[in-house]
């Protein structure tokens, strides 16, 4: 549709949208997160959902106790290697469409415990992460910003065509392999389909 005509109609109070936009508008404003905290970032996540920061303004206050009912996993805190298989399993048990926000330095990279023997160096080694939030811990505003970023991402997702969102594509996987406890590390140490180590150019 012509942008000028659309703008003219909007000024008259008539909104013209595609069905796709209406669909994305609806689901981006009713994302239900999984009630799932791993460490101190969870406190900030709880603060974000409470009255002062009020995540419910964005339709995301309905923290679900079961992955079957959740759309969004907020990985809030340090993912230890002991906990990583459970995180991946919970992600696998969520129905499509599902999104992941990795909250805080630990969840995105291991953070201050990166050199520790028992901490996973970022949950994006096993599951696809949509939004990364740096910070230790990130303030609730940062989580809200990440959430708005996710909303923009959902709003831009296509329903049809070759570049449609992955949950519309029957060939794209919905489950990701769950790592096992190995002798020294998780086996495998990463999912190469999801994450490859960054190439350092010196």
């Amino acid at each position: 549709m012509d942008e000028g005509l659309k703008s003219e109609l909007t000024k008259q109070g008539i909104y013209v949208v595609k069905l796709e936009q209406l669909y994305n508008w609806g689901r981006s404003n009713s994302v239900w997160p999984l009630g799932f905290g791993l460490a101190c970032c969870a406190i900030e996540m709880i603060a974000a959902s409470m009255a002062r920061f009020d995540l419910s303004r964005f339709g995301a206050e309905v923290f679900r106790p079961s992955p079957r009912q959740a759309d969004l996993m907020i990985v809030a805190g340090t993912v230890t290697k002991k906990m990583a298989p459970q995180v991946v399993r919970l992600y696998n048990q969520m129905p499509e469409p599902k999104y992941v926000i990795a909250m805080g330095a630990c969840a995105i990279s291991g953070g201050p415990f990166k050199q520790g023997y028992n901490v996973l160096k970022g949950i994006d080694r096993y599951i696809p992460v949509d939004v990364h939030i740096p910070g230790c811990p990130p303030r609730p505003e940062a989580l809200i910003h990440a959430f708005m970023t996710l909303q923009r991402k959902i709003d831009a997702q296509k329903v049809f065509g070759p570049d449609r969102a992955h949950h519309f594509d029957a060939d794209k996987p919905s489950e990701f392999p769950i790592p096992l406890y190995g002798e020294h590390d998780l086996v495998p140490a990463k999912n190469p389909n999801v994450w490859e180590p960054a190439v350092v150019v010196r």
Partner: peptide, 15 residues
């Protein structure tokens, strides 16, 4: 017609 179902062993297992 639009959004295919993607069941799996882990997804269908007991929570």
């Amino acid at each position: 017609f639009v959004s295919p179902q993607k069941p799996g062993n882990v997804k269908n297992s007991t929570y």
